[in-house]
């Protein structure tokens, strides 16, 4: 069953086309990543699903019903906002956000205790949110999306601005939700490792349009065996980089020019590249086929337009 259906959605801000005729759907219980460079329309799409933005055209259905009448199925966490009341404790925040949806009583209190326990927040339950670390605040915000026990959760950049440890903690929290809570999740993020680890499907947007839409596995397969890593004996000069860039291959110069990564469509193209390097007396120390990661696939699809 489709939990979320977005059909021919478009949204303009004046002359700016934020979302341009996009359609996708997410099945119940699945986790889908919505990716794209800044300004590609991810947040607008999420806010349209949440009925916080009215689209110019198109329709959004939640379990087959118009989204405006189905808000009881959705909760969300938004990027760049605090989502919480800082002068309240985690427990008070969760109780408050349940209350504004008309929920309360012993069942909700028990659920709050379970969530605080699950996210290792029990010992901080009576500490005001502004005294918690950024990672803990984000955990409370994610718990807030779960307190109403909605079927669908929309997460807009849940790991943005977190330090390494908090990032790992939030990733574990998300993996826990995915593995044991049977929620339908739409996740917007720039963190491709997170996408690779927890998403089943992805929708990639660029300039308001969908440029790819498939399972993470299928996209990885599509780009497999095409990235080669060439380690050089010394750094490339600017002239060499210019020369290679004009060869018509997708070169990525890393490690200060001591390493080249190249995406090719035919395996034998690597010999032509080696010949070109020999021609310019660029010496190779090591050459190997690189395990593809989702970040490179994303960059390929969006033509490296990630800000």
């Amino acid at each position: 069953m489709e939990a979320i259906e977005v059909n021919e959605l478009s949204k303009y801000y004046g002359n700016l086309k934020a979302v341009d005729d996009i359609s996708f759907s997410i099945k119940k219980g699945e986790i889908c990543g919505i990716l794209g460079p800044n300004g590609s329309g991810k947040t607008t799409t999420i806010k349209c699903i949440c009925n916080l933005i009215i689209p110019d055209s198109g329709e959004i259905k939640i379990f087959g019903e118009d989204n405006k009448k189905s808000m009881e199925y959705i909760s969300a966490l938004f990027e760049g906002t605090r989502n919480l009341y800082w002068k309240l404790t985690p427990r008070e925040n969760l109780r408050y956000f349940a209350g504004i949806r008309g929920l309360g009583g012993k069942k909700v209190e028990r659920h709050i205790d379970e969530l605080l326990d699950r996210f290792n927040l029990s010992d901080k339950k009576d500490t005001m949110v502004n005294n918690l670390s950024r990672g803990m605040q984000q955990k409370v915000a994610i718990a807030m999306t779960l307190v109403c026990d909605t079927e669908i959760i929309l997460l807009d950049e849940p790991t943005l601005g977190l330090d390494v440890q908090s990032h790992i903690d939030i990733k574990e929290v998300l993996m826990d939700i995915v593995s044991s809570m049977n929620k339908t999740i739409l996740l917007s993020t720039h963190d491709m490792n997170l996408v690779q680890d927890i998403c089943k499907d992805v929708v990639i947007l660029n300039k308001g349009k969908i440029v790819a839409q498939d399972s993470v596995g299928a996209l990885m397969d599509m780009f497999r065996s095409m990235t080669y890593e060439i380690v050089l004996t010394e750094s490339l000069s600017k002239d060499d980089e210019k020369y290679l860039s004009n060869l018509g291959y997708d070169f990525y110069f890393v490690n200060n020019g001591t390493k080249i990564e190249v995406d090719i469509s035919e395996v034998n193209e690597i010999y032509a590249i080696i010949d070109s390097l020999r021609e310019k007396s660029i010496f190779i120390k090591e050459i190997k086929q690189k395990d593809n990661n989702f970040e490179r696939i994303f960059l390929n699809i969006t033509n490296g337009e990630v800000e």
Binding site: M71, F78, G80, R82, N83, I100
Partner: peptide, 13 residues
């Protein structure tokens, strides 16, 4: 300004 207005808007009330 606190970033909680969206949450209020998402209530079924």
């Amino acid at each position: 300004s606190k970033g909680t207005l969206e949450q209020l808007n998402m209530s079924n009330i």
